[in-house]
Deep mutational scan, measured.
Amino acid sequence: RDLEAFAERFKQRRIKLGVTQADVGSALANLKIPGVGSLSQSTICRFESLTLSHNNMIALKPILQAWLEEAE
């Protein structure tokens, strides 16, 4: 599925960039996405391991996609 593929790709890119889950969570606040502050390390972990609810995964995907584009 698309979400699973993105979560795996996100994790691989994050590791390759040398960024921790906690770093991603705090960096999201710097993107200044309306309504989005920082996220906890555990939320990033649960996204990568696909243990969040489907609706949460869908909500987080564009936010994490934006971070990934900014980081690369």
Score class of each variant (00 low, 15 high):
42 S>A: 12
62 P>Q: 03
60 L>P: 00
9 R>S: 14
70 E>M: 06
61 K>P: 01
57 M>L: 09
36 V>W: 09
63 I>T: 11
52 L>Q: 00
7 A>Y: 04
68 L>Y: 05
66 A>C: 05
68 L>C: 03
30 N>H: 11
10 F>D: 01
17 L>W: 03
65 Q>A: 11
7 A>P: 02
18 G>K: 04
50 L>C: 12
17 L>N: 04
38 S>C: 11
31 L>A: 05
50 L>Q: 15
23 D>N: 10
69 E>K: 04
8 E>Q: 11
38 S>G: 11
66 A>Q: 10
9 R>K: 13
23 D>Y: 07
18 G>I: 01
54 H>V: 10
59 A>P: 02
63 I>K: 04
57 M>I: 06
22 A>N: 08
36 V>H: 07
63 I>D: 05
33 I>V: 14
45 C>N: 15
66 A>S: 13
57 M>H: 03
4 E>R: 10
54 H>I: 12
44 I>E: 03
34 P>T: 07
42 S>K: 14
23 D>L: 07
15 I>C: 05
15 I>H: 04
63 I>C: 08
37 G>W: 02
61 K>I: 06
49 S>P: 04
38 S>A: 13
39 L>G: 04
55 N>T: 13
21 Q>Y: 09
14 R>M: 02
20 T>N: 03
1 R>A: 15
43 T>W: 07
46 R>A: 13
18 G>T: 00
39 L>M: 13
17 L>G: 01
43 T>H: 07
17 L>V: 03
60 L>F: 07
13 R>A: 14
10 F>E: 02
20 T>I: 00
13 R>K: 15
32 K>D: 14
51 T>K: 15
21 Q>F: 05
41 Q>P: 12
66 A>E: 13
69 E>T: 10
20 T>L: 03
65 Q>I: 04
47 F>K: 00
8 E>P: 01
17 L>D: 02
29 A>M: 12
38 S>W: 08
22 A>C: 02
15 I>P: 03
23 D>F: 08
43 T>C: 08
31 L>V: 11
36 V>Y: 12
41 Q>S: 12
62 P>R: 02
24 V>C: 11
15 I>Y: 04
17 L>R: 02
4 E>W: 08
43 T>Y: 00
8 E>L: 11
19 V>T: 06
52 L>P: 01
7 A>W: 02
44 I>K: 12
40 S>R: 06
3 L>F: 15
27 A>T: 05
8 E>Y: 14
57 M>Y: 00
50 L>M: 13
9 R>T: 14
3 L>V: 09
72 E>T: 04
47 F>M: 01
22 A>Q: 12
29 A>G: 13
58 I>K: 14
62 P>N: 05
50 L>V: 11
70 E>S: 11
50 L>E: 06
56 N>A: 12
37 G>D: 08
4 E>N: 09
59 A>H: 07
62 P>M: 01
63 I>S: 08
13 R>N: 05
51 T>D: 07
54 H>T: 14
48 E>G: 03
46 R>H: 10
23 D>E: 12
52 L>F: 02
44 I>V: 09
7 A>S: 04
24 V>F: 03
11 K>H: 01
52 L>N: 00
61 K>A: 09
37 G>P: 08
58 I>D: 03
5 A>K: 07
58 I>Q: 14
63 I>W: 05
28 L>K: 01
42 S>M: 04
30 N>G: 11
20 T>G: 05
65 Q>L: 08
8 E>S: 12
32 K>T: 10
35 G>M: 01
66 A>F: 08
19 V>R: 14
48 E>Q: 01
23 D>I: 01
53 S>T: 12
53 S>N: 03
15 I>A: 08
58 I>N: 11
55 N>L: 10
14 R>K: 03
54 H>E: 07
70 E>P: 01
17 L>K: 07
45 C>R: 13
3 L>C: 02
37 G>N: 06
10 F>L: 00
28 L>M: 13
43 T>I: 15
43 T>V: 13
65 Q>W: 04
11 K>F: 02
13 R>D: 04
8 E>T: 08
52 L>E: 02
21 Q>W: 08
18 G>A: 03
31 L>Q: 14
59 A>W: 11
39 L>E: 03
17 L>M: 13
8 E>G: 10
2 D>Q: 11
15 I>T: 14
12 Q>P: 00
48 E>H: 01
15 I>M: 15
48 E>M: 00
35 G>E: 05
29 A>L: 09
69 E>R: 08
18 G>F: 01
27 A>R: 09
62 P>D: 09
66 A>R: 13
69 E>L: 11
7 A>H: 02
4 E>F: 07
19 V>W: 12
70 E>L: 04
64 L>Y: 05
51 T>V: 06
11 K>T: 09
14 R>W: 00
34 P>Q: 07
49 S>I: 00
48 E>A: 01
33 I>P: 06
64 L>M: 06
27 A>M: 08
30 N>E: 04
53 S>R: 06
16 K>D: 05
46 R>V: 01
27 A>G: 05
5 A>P: 07
15 I>L: 11
49 S>L: 07
28 L>S: 03
72 E>I: 02
61 K>H: 10
33 I>R: 06
22 A>D: 07
34 P>S: 11
55 N>C: 08
45 C>I: 07
71 A>W: 12
45 C>D: 10
27 A>V: 07
26 S>V: 08
45 C>H: 14
49 S>Q: 13
69 E>H: 04
22 A>T: 06
40 S>W: 01
21 Q>S: 10
32 K>P: 06
43 T>P: 02
7 A>G: 03
20 T>D: 07
4 E>Q: 10
26 S>E: 14
7 A>N: 01
41 Q>M: 10
63 I>F: 15
7 A>Q: 00
65 Q>K: 11
3 L>Q: 05
33 I>M: 09
51 T>F: 05
26 S>D: 11
62 P>K: 02
58 I>C: 05
70 E>G: 06
19 V>A: 14
54 H>K: 04
19 V>F: 11
28 L>P: 00
2 D>T: 04
10 F>I: 03
10 F>P: 00
9 R>Q: 15
70 E>R: 11
49 S>F: 03
27 A>P: 00
3 L>D: 03
55 N>V: 13
57 M>V: 03
3 L>P: 03
31 L>K: 13
68 L>V: 05
39 L>Q: 02
65 Q>M: 08
16 K>V: 10
18 G>V: 01
42 S>Q: 11
26 S>L: 14
13 R>F: 05
15 I>F: 06
32 K>F: 06
14 R>Q: 01
31 L>S: 07
40 S>M: 02
54 H>P: 11
61 K>F: 05
2 D>R: 05
19 V>G: 00
59 A>D: 15
52 L>Y: 00
29 A>S: 14
58 I>S: 13
39 L>S: 07
30 N>S: 12
52 L>M: 06
22 A>M: 08
53 S>C: 04
1 R>P: 08
71 A>M: 05
35 G>N: 10
56 N>F: 09
70 E>I: 09
49 S>W: 04
46 R>G: 11
16 K>R: 13
51 T>N: 04
7 A>C: 06
49 S>A: 12
61 K>R: 14
51 T>H: 08
11 K>L: 03
32 K>W: 09
16 K>H: 14
